[in-house]
C-alpha cells in the first residue's frame, strides 16, 4: 500500500510533470490562457495517461519488445481519438477552445514516456497509480498556470471577475510571450524554492532540472 501511495504522490510534487520534469511543454504553453482551458486539457491528459498506462501494463508481457513503441503509439492514439469524440459530444465549447492541441496529446512526451519508462515494467495497479498521480499533477499545474495568466491577462478567474473595476487587462500574459515568460518564471520559482530548502539544510545551491528531450525516454529509442 505504501509503495502504491508513493507512486501516486510523486506526481503531485516530487516529479510534478511540467514544472519538475519539464515535459510536454506545448499544451502547457498553448492552452493555459484561462484556468478553464487548463483544467479541461488536464482532465483529458489524466484520462489518456491513466488508461494508456493501464493498457500498456496489461499487455506488457504479450507485446514483443521490437514493436513495443508502435504498440504504445497505437494505444495512445486510440485513447486520444476517444477523448476527441467524447469531448465533441459532451464538451463542444472546450473542444473548440483547445483546437489542434487535443489531437496533439498523442505526441505529448509524458504519455509515451511513462508507457516506456514505467508502465511497461510495472504491475497494473502501480501503473494506474503512476498515471493517475502524474496526470493529476499535470492537470493541477495547467490549472495553476491558467489561473495565473487569466487573472492578469483578462482580470478574471474561471470566468469570474476578480480584479478591481479600473483594472486594464495585462494582455501580455495571454499572448505567446507571456506564456513563455510565465512558465520560465514559475520554473525559476520552483528552483529558488529547492535552493532555499537546500540552504536551510546547509547545502549548496544548484541549477534546476535540465530540460532534455531524452528525459522522456522516447527520443533515443528507435521504433524497431
Amino acid at each position: 500500500m505504501s509503495t502504491l501511495w508513493k507512486e501516486f504522490s510523486k506526481g503531485l510534487w516530487r516529479d510534478l510533470p511540467p514544472f519538475r520534469l519539464v515535459l510536454g511543454l506545448c499544451p502547457v504553453l498553448a492552452v493555459t490562457k484561462t484556468a478553464d482551458n487548463g483544467l479541461g486539457m488536464g482532465l483529458a491528459v489524466i484520462f489518456v495517461l491513466t488508461l494508456s498506462n493501464v493498457f500498456v501494463s496489461l499487455l506488457r508481457n504479450i507485446i514483443p519488445s521490437k514493436v513495443r513503441i508502435a504498440c504504445f503509439i497505437v494505444i495512445a492514439a486510440s485513447l486520444v481519438v476517444c477523448v476527441e469524440l467524447l469531448m465533441q459530444a459532451f464538451a463542444y465549447p472546450l473542444y473548440q477552445q483547445l483546437g489542434i492541441f487535443v489531437p496533439l496529446i498523442v505526441v505529448n512526451c509524458i504519455i509515451l514516456g511513462r508507457a516506456e519508462a514505467f508502465a511497461s515494467k510495472n504491475t497494473v495497479l502501480m501503473s494506474t497509480a503512476d498515471g493517475l498521480g502524474l496526470g493529476i499533477g499535470f492537470a493541477l499545474s495547467l490549472t495553476f498556470l491558467g489561473a495565473l495568466r487569466e487573472t492578469f491577462g483578462y482580470g478574471t478567474l474561471f470566468g469570474k471577475s476578480v480584479m478591481w473595476s479600473g483594472f486594464e487587462p495585462f494582455t501580455f500574459m495571454i499572448e505567446a510571450p507571456g506564456a513563455f515568460v510565465c512558465l520560465g518564471l514559475v520554473l525559476a520559482a520552483m528552483n529558488a524554492l529547492t535552493n532555499w530548502q537546500r540552504g536551510v539544510k546547509g547545502l549548496e545551491a544548484v541549477e534546476g532540472p535540465k530540460h532534455d528531450c531524452k528525459a522522456c525516454g522516447m527520443c533515443n529509442t528507435p521504433l524497431k
Binding site: 486594464e168 487587462p169 495585462f170 494582455t171 501580455f172 499572448e175 510571450p177
Partner: peptide, 10 residues
C-alpha cells in the same frame, strides 16, 4: 514592447 502589446491604446 511588453506594454505596447498589452495596452496599445494607452
Amino acid at each position: 514592447t511588453t506594454c505596447r502589446i498589452s495596452w496599445g491604446t494607452f
